[in-house]
Amino acid sequence: MAKIIVVTSGKGGVGKTTSSAAIGTGLALSGHKTVIVDFDIGLRNLDLIMGCERRVVYDFVNVINGEANLKQTLIKDKRVENLFILPASQTRDKDALTKEGVEKVLHELAKDFEFIICDSPAGIEAGAMMALYFADEAVVVTNPEVSSVRDSDRILGMLSSKSRRAERGEDAIKEHLLLTRYNPERVAKGEMLSVEDVQEILAIPLIGVIPESQAVLNASNSGQPVTLDQDSDAGQAYLDTVSRLLGNTVDFRFLTVEKKGLLKRIFGG
């Protein structure tokens, strides 16, 4: 039985697509057959982050409209076994997605894949609702600042009222908090909300904390999911997150300010 995980946030620019790519890649690296679906119709980004933009022939909307089949449309990742991408359409808008169409495609994917990662667009409109409607679990990506936290709160309300599970009265969507762009130094200075602050407000279990890192930007620019950069702090934090998503208990890292050694202080670090 495939698990459908939506990566969502309400607010834009907090790292949904980066996280979708990183988590999807992490799951595939752990040996689980995974597909990442870009729900951001009209603002296609996932292909860039995954570095497969030149290989997009057909897209999600083509599949829904029956103009292409899944086999033609899915892009197989060249670096990681078991990893596929279903790109969004760049020329259409969010209204091109219908509930029936999305359901049909997800149902089809569920036959083949263990994990279906739905990369949600920002906002709370039709596109975002479509991405979360069929989800079993949700990764709510939040930056440690008030507007992002409030938008996440809004999305959590949607998850518990507008999803298929909610409408059918089934078990609620399992919600996970993923804190991204976390900077312990700025938290210590009081310039950023702490993990505890965010958790107190949102009151959902924490699945990961991704430190603010140059590695994330480098990864995006080079079309490499940051999980593949296993020497970086962000890459390691995403791998921890994936491990927790798979049910393992992993200690949280990168939460406190790193004490600089004497050499680092002298030569810079």
Binding site: R150, D153, L156, G157, I201
Partner: peptide
């Protein structure tokens, strides 16, 4: 029985209201 999230509105008509959780900003 749960948190009331931002954007949600609860009206207890002719009744008391008990919330076993938090009422979020914007709720």
């Amino acid at each position: 029985e749960q948190n009331i999230r931002s954007g949600q509105q609860i009206y207890a008509k002719g009744a008391d209201l008990i919330v076993r959780g938090a009422v979020g900003a914007g709720a």
